[in-house]
Nucleic acid binder design. Structure first.
Length: 979
RNA sequence: GGGCGUAUAGCUCAGUGGUAGAGCACUUCGUUGACAUCGAAGGGGUCGGGAGUUCAACUCUCUCUACGCCCA
């Protein structure tokens, strides 16, 4: 099989992916090997692959392929998230299109329909991840609502409840009136919007006066608000306790003009004397701050007035004081129809209770407005897209503060390493100020909360109804809580729930050898309270540990988590909290946070802006390998990635380059290496490239170990292109050409070598083929994590003439060159490269055709140099176009002169030569060298430097100065020779 | 208001206590049988402003400015 002239990614990608997956190589049996584990952030079952997934999954695949090649038992757990709200919305939207709706069905029927949708249309993203080349363990693909995860969720809920870490509470929640469910703090996005600030007169009851002029026979206190509709449920007015203006009215009553409700003026620090009038209306049932003020004023949560229903339409409050005309109105203008807000303003105005906002126009005329324009930080639901309404309901809360403590500690003591480190502060800052996590959602799709109520409202939490009934006693009628859990509640269990928890937990045996982690050289101490779960009320629970030999035991903690920083709080932090609580150890040892992929202009990609780049389109255009390499090369820590198609194209070109280099090898009888170790080599160029491989490998391993994806990608890129293709392959051409006949058709190494003219030449050709084949193999292996498709293709193609490979590249062995760095060979080839480069430069600058063959007369050359030149004569001739060397002075006439390492190479020039051009050339070089020499001289002339600088620095400066001075002298001499 | 990040070649970005690099773009040249999705050579930066530490600062500290993000 010969390689096609053109590399076509599409032709190989699907084939190799199917082969890997079918042959089970994403997770080969390696029970004895050291485990390495990553769990994939489960994408929404409704989702499709966007550019952020491409980044996130490419990085994970690079790591997992690298670890697999290193022989580890590499497990990349994959699965999907049921995505409660998102999925329910998708299915409901489809129903709407058919003039149908959720409430036409029973809960069971609807949930059944969602499952049907999931089976038929869900999970498109899994095919797309395959196109990207991701080597996940599909054989154990999970779902956050599969049986195992359901079991885990139930147990976690029940245990947390029994430990007092989940509780039911009546308080204000963020209510999304579009979705008609509570959401968590994290799902609220605060957006600055243009709004209005209205000022009103609130009449003082019982003849109490301030210093205002008489008004309706009453005095008033001025209050201001951005949400006038809430005045229908006002329960107080607050003033700052030290605000002198209002001392006399604290404790006195207001008579609200619209509702007629009477309530008190209270002193509370929440009132800001600087803001508006300094007095603020208090609606405890519809504002988070007011809720706190209300509590301080002595209202129990149950007494706080509510004036809105689940869709944010006005409903009658408990005291029945809201006028009938308001009932049923939306909270504010919606779809062009005025709502309660507008009507409240109108009525207040009619009642003379609106204080107009007065401005002057540019002509100095005063103008009156109903309200003062104002920018308001408005909360929106991230899914529903409407303004969030603080609403007083009973919901389930997780005591996040308690769970956060060990997660804080884990990062603090290094049990979890966050990369890049700058995110630690964000972690601490959020965890230390964490609020109770509202986990109940008023949806149908999700994990139903395992709680039952009796008629008296008493709660029974248990893993099933029978157990709840047992708690309640026979004959007690129970009703199950209709709500489901937040999607993130289940995904928080991903690192252990997917590995067999809780099924694979067994009672801890007395043997101290059992179990892992805690108390045994780990940084956690079992006696350390923060890492020990709270005890259940009925006493100590049996201590459970992962069953020895189970996946759970081998793969928890995971080694690494890679996620975008945008889900640090949603997912990563909650995994840390739940993982430590239930596994008594951290979920992962390292947490790598990457940035966002932005549009070319740096803006955030969004559907509404229409600037979304489809990764699948890029794969079609450039190949998955190119897109992956782009992601890796652009991923530097702590920075977002700007999309750049040109760069993806560049990496497609890189793949093509490798393809063509392989073709070159193929036609020159270079095939797959027979050894893992570097072949024995005598020729400097071969010894040099082996050293280069060794250095590249070290740099690559270091970069990957440090999670420096950009450095890793650049290392292999430059080695392949600059060292291997541009120099090594060029330098070995003259060696290979000693093989007088081109192997045609290629007959493999032995047949080709037979035609070599002399035995020494034959040995050189054999050695070079062996080394070149070995180096190409190393490139293919080192590049595989980044570009899995082309490398697997080449891995097999390059071996097709020698009987094929015994195994696929995906499970091959990571390079172990076991070769020393050969300093002599490096020095020689380095010299060779510099001499050839300098010759080329001189030709261009002197307008000499590049192909012109020249003779070099060497000045100041020693025996060693003479030997070098002899060794490298064929490369100097063919690559450098220096066909002969003489150690005699150059003949009279025009010359170009090159100074390298203490020797001067004088190149006589045939015909007319522009002496001035050569002078200019040499002068330029002399200037550069002199400048450097002068700077070094200055530094060394500074007594402070010589005394205080590190000795190595002084040493190096001296050596550099000697080199530069010598070079300057030779350049000067060359100039002098030109006259 | 609190926190974080970023400012380096025309563009996108690396980088190190000892006077700067890559890719793309640009200029010139090029069919020496792997590759024009290429090769060779080259031009281009007072490393955002200011101050400090140091023998030495693009690199460390402070400060200012601009932009971005998160939280309140």
């Amino acid at each position: 099989m010969t390689l096609d002239k053109n590399f076509d990614p599409a032709a190989i990608e699907a084939r190799w992916y199917a082969h890997w997956e079918k042959s089970g190589q994403f997770r080969p049996e390696r029970g004895d090997a050291e485990p390495f584990t990553i769990v994939n952030p489960p994408p929404n079952v409704t989702g499709s692959l966007h550019i952020g997934h491409a980044l996130d999954n490419t990085l994970q695949d690079i790591i997992i392929r690298h670890e697999r090649l290193k022989g580890k038992d590499a497990l990349w757990v994959v699965g999907m998230d049921h995505a409660g709200i998102a999925t329910q919305m998708v299915v409901e939207r489809q129903m709407e299109e058919r003039q149908d709706k959720r409430t036409n069905y029973t809960r069971e029927e609807f949930v059944e329909k969602v499952w049907e949708w999931k089976e038929e249309s869900g999970g498109a993203i899994t095919g797309q991840l395959r196109r990207l080349g991701c080597s996940m363990d599909w054989s154990n693909e999970r779902f956050t609502m599969d049986d195992g995860m359901n079991e885990a969720v139930l147990k976690v809920f029940v245990d947390l409840y029994n430990d007092g870490l989940i509780y039911r509470d009546k308080r204000l929640v963020n209510w999304d009136p579009a979705l008609k469910t509570a959401i968590s703090d994290l799902e609220v996005e605060t957006v600055d919007t243009k709004g209005s600030f209205w000022h009103f007169k609130y009449p003082l009851a019982d003849g109490v006066t301030l210093d205002h002029p008489d008004f309706r026979g009453q005095d008033f206190i001025e209050v201001a608000t951005t949400r006038p509709e809430t005045m229908l449920a006002d329960m107080a007015v607050a003033v700052h306790p030290s605000d002198e203006r209002y001392q006399s009215v604290i404790g006195k009553e207001i008579e609200q003009p619209i509702t007629g409700r009477r309530f008190k003026i209270v002193a509370d620090e929440h009132a800001d004397p600087e803001l508006g009038s300094g007095a603020v209306k208090i609606t405890p049932g519809h504002d988070f701050n007011d809720f706190e003020v209300g509590k301080r004023a002595g209202f129990a949560a149950g007494e706080m007035l509510n004036m809105l229903d689940g869709e944010a339409n006005v409903c009658q409050s408990a005291d029945g004081l809201i006028p009938e005309e308001f009932i049923g109105l939306h909270r504010f203008k919606k779809d062009g129809v005025d709502g309660a807000r507008e009507l409240v303003v109108q009525r207040m105005k009619e009642l003379g209770c609106l204080i107009p906002h007065v401005t002057k126009n540019k002509d100095g005329e005063t103008q009156e407005h109903d309200a003062e324009p104002r920018t308001i930080a408005t909360p929106f639901g991230d899914r529903g897209g409407v303004v969030i309404e603080p609403w007083l309901t009973d919901q389930w809360y997780v005591d996040a503060e308690t769970l956060a403590q060990p997660a804080i500690k884990a990062v603090r003591d290094g049990s979890i390493e966050i990369v890049p480190k700058t995110w630690e502060k964000t972690w601490f800052n959020w965890m230390e100020n964490i609020q109770p996590w509202c986990v109940s959602r008023q949806l149908w799709w999700g994990h139903r909360i395992p709680a039952w109520f009796d008629d008296a409202g008493k709660i029974y939490v248990a893993e099933d109804e029978a157990a709840a009934q047992k708690q309640a006693g026979e004959g007690v009628a129970l009703t199950r809580d209709p709500d489901v859990l937040d999607t993130w509640f289940s995904s928080a269990l991903w690192p252990f729930g997917t590995l067999g928890w809780p099924e694979d937990m067994v009672p801890e045996k007395p043997s101290p050898l059992q179990g892992r982690g805690l108390g045994e050289g780990e940084s956690h101490d079992a006696s350390d309270t923060p890492l020990s779960p709270a005890l259940s009320p009925e006493g100590e629970r049996e201590r459970m540990v992962p069953r020895p030999g189970s996946d759970l035991e081998r793969h928890y903690p995971n080694d690494l988590l890679i996620s975008g920083f945008d889900i640090l709080f949603f997912w990563d932090a909650r995994m840390a909290m739940q993982g430590i609580q239930f596994m008594k150890d951290v979920p992962w040892k390292r947490l790598y946070l990457h940035g966002l992929v932005r549009a070319e202009d740096g803006s955030k990609m969004s559907k509404s802006k229409g600037n979304v780049v489809d990764p699948l389109g890029l794969i079609d255009q450039y190949g998955a390998d190119a897109l992956r390499f782009f992601m890796a090369a652009m991923e530097s820590q702590g920075r977002d990635i700007k999309m750049d198609d040109k760069r993806v194209e560049g990496y497609r070109n890189f793949a093509t380059k490798l393809w063509n280099a392989s073709r070159f090898c193929e036609v020159n009888g270079i095939g797959a290496s027979k050894t893992l170790r570097a072949p024995e080599a005598k020729l400097p160029v071969n010894r040099w490239i082996i050293s280069e491989v060794t250095e590249t490998l070290a740099a690559l391993d270091k970069a990957l170990g440090d999670l420096r994806f950009d450095a890793a990608a650049n290392t292999i890129y430059h080695f392949t292109w600059d060292r291997f293709c541009d120099w090594y392959l060029e330098l070995i051409k003259p060696i290979l050409s000693q093989d007088s006949v081109h192997p045609e058709p290629v007959e493999g190494l032995d047949g080709a070598a037979d035609r070599t003219s002399t035995s020494s030449a034959r040995a050189e050709v054999d050695e070079t083929r062996a080394v070149a084949g070995w180096v190409l193999d190393q490139i293919i292996v080192m590049l595989h994590p980044f570009m899995p498709f082309i490398t697997e293709e080449l891995w097999h193609s390059m071996a097709s003439e020698t009987g094929g490979r015994n195994y696929d590249l995906i499970v091959a062995k990571w390079p172990e060159p076991k070769a020393e760095i050969d300093a002599d060979a490096k020095a020689e080839v380095d010299w060779l490269i510099r001499l050839i480069s300098a010759t080329r430069t001189a030709k261009v600058e002197l307008n000499i055709a590049p192909g012109t063959k020249m003779t070099a007369h060497v000045r100041d050359g020693d025996d060693a140099l003479q030997e070098r030149i002899a060794r490298q004569s064929s490369a100097l001739d063919r690559v450098g176009r220096l066909e002969s060397f003489s150690f005699d002075p150059a003949p009279e006439g025009a010359t170009a002169q090159i100074v390298i390492d203490g020797a001067t190479y004088v190149l006589p020039l045939a015909g007319a030569i522009d002496i001035d051009a050569e002078k200019a050339r040499l002068n330029k070089a002399l200037e550069a060298v002199s400048k450097e020499a002068k700077s070094l001289e200055g530094r060394l002339g500074n007594a402070n430097f010589v005394e205080k600088a590190k000795p190595e620095a002084v040493e190096k400066a001296r050596a550099d100065l000697a080199d530069k001075s010598a070079e300057a002298e030779r350049l000067q001499a060359a100039l002098d020779r030109l006259g």
